[in-house]
Every structure is written in C-alpha cells, then in structure tokens.
C-alpha cells in the first residue's frame, strides 16, 4: 500500500492503463486459445471448450504429415518471397533514389500494388494465369511460344512459383519504400569520402551504402516475415492449398480446420506450433539487426 503512494510507483501507475489494455487484447486471447488447444473445442458446440484432453491435439499434429508439409512449404515460401522482395525492393529503391524529377509521383505509383486487398490480387492472378481463358496463356499462344496451355496453377512447381510471383508483385513496394527512406537518410559525406578515396560504384554500394541500409533491411524483413501471413487470402482464392495439397500453407490449412471444419481446438494447436516459425524469424532478424547497428556504431 505504501509503495502505491510512493513516488516510485508513479511510472507504474501511469503505465497501468496501457498494461491492462495490452493484457485484455493480447494476453487474454492468447491464453484462451492456448487453453482451447488443449480441448476438443468445436465452434458449434460451445460446451466442448470445457472438456480437457491434455496434449491430444498436439500428439495428433506430431503424426500429421499434411501439417508438417504445410509447415515446411510455408518456411520455404516465406524465405523465398522475402529474399526476392528484398532484392527487388532494394533495386527499385536504388533506381528511384537516382531520379531527380518526378520522384514523388513514382513513389506514389510504386505504392499501388500495396493498396490492393490480397483477395483482389488473388483474383487478378487467378484470371491472368487461368489455363484456358487466362491472359498469360493466350498471349503465349498468340505469340506462338506454346502449343499446349501451361497449367500454371496445377503443376506443383509452377503453382508455388505463381503464388510467390503474386506475393512479390503485391509487396515488393513495401520493401522499396522502407529502403528508399533508408537511402535518403544516408549522409552524403561517407559516400563522397569513399569516392575521393577511389572506390568504384560497386565498392561504394558494398562497403558504405549497404552497411548503412542493413538496419532498415532487417526491420523491413522482420515486419514482412510476420506480414507475409496476409498471403492467406491470396492463396485461398488462387488455389485454396490445392491441387492435392501442393500449395497448402499453414494458414490455408488452419483456416480450413478452424472455420470450415469448426475444429477450433485442433486449429489452435496448429497455430501454436506455427508461432514457432514466427519466433524463429523474428529472433533471427532482431539478432541481425542488433549486429548491423553495432557495426554502424563502430564504423562511425
């Protein structure tokens, strides 16, 4: 009681409303979903939420090869899509940074794909890549490049590449915008000093620009690694995880189990195991971010 009245309590008291809100909107749902993952909770039978079955949902997951394939596929998808977006976004940012006239317009145009809802992007790519009435096949056919339609969304490799292409199209500009902000924040002196010392373009980029940009890259990577989850809507529309599970990701699987099958207990168990993936990515990028900042500190 005395502590509450002491000046030392003031910061805690001031933070209390924020802490309460965070507990209510983040911790509580997390705890409820953790609990439900230990029950056979079916959405349409609310009473099943109070039936404890221990780790049965997790044990079943352990032997569920479909889930582990989806886990692995998601890991590959996030890795490939993130790296592609980063490289393309960096290239785009460097190019836009060179522009002296109309840069603002270009920046705005660059943001267009971000403004589309992922569902729309899904429909867009689904119809572009439709094997019989799609634009891509019709164009290739008219140009005489193919004689048989290419099954873009059926073949295992092509379907995954198509989804990656749609994701990259939609989100590369996020990287580009963040990295452009980084490029604009680089002071001119180190760049000029490097040039005076005889560095060529590549050397300036490799040893001055890139180290300055690394914190921006890792922050963008961290945000995007969590955000690629938005691709759920897109994949749901383009293939819904099919055919034959070839494009099944964690999110399509979890949504189907949780909402269509109403097996929320099982879906939450999958959700908790998949959180591992997010933790791994976040942990890795934060460590890299800390390293990059330490390096910058040393360089300065």
């Amino acid at each position: 009681m005395n502590f509450l009245r002491s000046p030392r309590a003031i910061p805690y008291l001031l933070l209390l409303p924020a802490i309460l809100v965070i507990l209510a909107v983040i911790l509580l749902p997390l705890l409820v979903s953790l609990w439900s993952s230990l029950t056979p909770y079916v959405l349409t039978r609310p009473a099943s939420l109070y039936q404890f079955v221990g780790f049965r949902n997790y044990e079943r997951l352990w032997g569920n090869s479909d889930f582990w394939w989806a886990f692995l596929r998601t890991l590959v998808f996030v890795t490939v899509a993130l790296n592609l977006e980063m490289v393309l976004g960096l290239g785009l940012a460097m190019l836009v940074n060179q522009i002296t006239w109309g840069q603002r317009t270009i920046r705005t145009i660059m943001m267009f794909p971000m403004m589309f809802s992922p569902i729309l992007v899904g429909f867009l790519f689904k119809y572009l890549l439709n094997d019989s009435i799609g634009f891509v096949n019709n164009a290739l056919y008219s140009l005489g490049l193919i004689t048989d339609p290419v099954p873009w969304l059926v073949d295992g490799t092509l379907a995954n590449l198509s989804i990656i292409a749609a994701e990259v199209w939609m989100s590369t500009s996020v990287f580009a915008i963040l990295l452009l902000a980084g490029l604009m924040a680089i002071p001119a002196e180190p760049l000029e000093a490097a040039r005076v010392d005889g560095c060529n373009g590549w050397q300036v980029f490799r040893h001055v620009t890139l180290p300055f940009l690394m914190p921006f890259i890792y922050i963008a990577m961290t945000i995007r690694s969590l955000d690629v989850a938005r691709a759920y809507d897109m994949i749901r529309i383009m293939t819904n995880g099919g055919p034959a599970g070839r494009t099944e990701m964690l999110w399509t699987l979890i949504a189907r189990v949780g909402y269509q099958n109403s097996q929320m207990g099982s879906a939450n168990a999958m959700g908790y195991v998949s959180i591992l993936l997010s933790i791994i990515f976040t942990f890795y990028f934060y460590r890299k971010l800390a390293d990059a900042r330490a390096f910058m500190g040393g360089a300065q």
């Binding site: 094997d131 019989s132 048989d148 099954p151 059926v154 383009m238 099919g242 034959a244």
Partner: peptide, 14 residues
C-alpha cells in the same frame, strides 16, 4: 486432356 488442366482448381464461376 479433354478438360482444361486447371479444372482441378476451378469453382463454379470458372
């Protein structure tokens, strides 16, 4: 090959 290869992804709309 009497149906479009993509038919395995088709819904009613397509």
């Amino acid at each position: 090959k009497a149906v479009p290869a993509g038919t395995v992804n088709y819904g009613w709309d397509e």
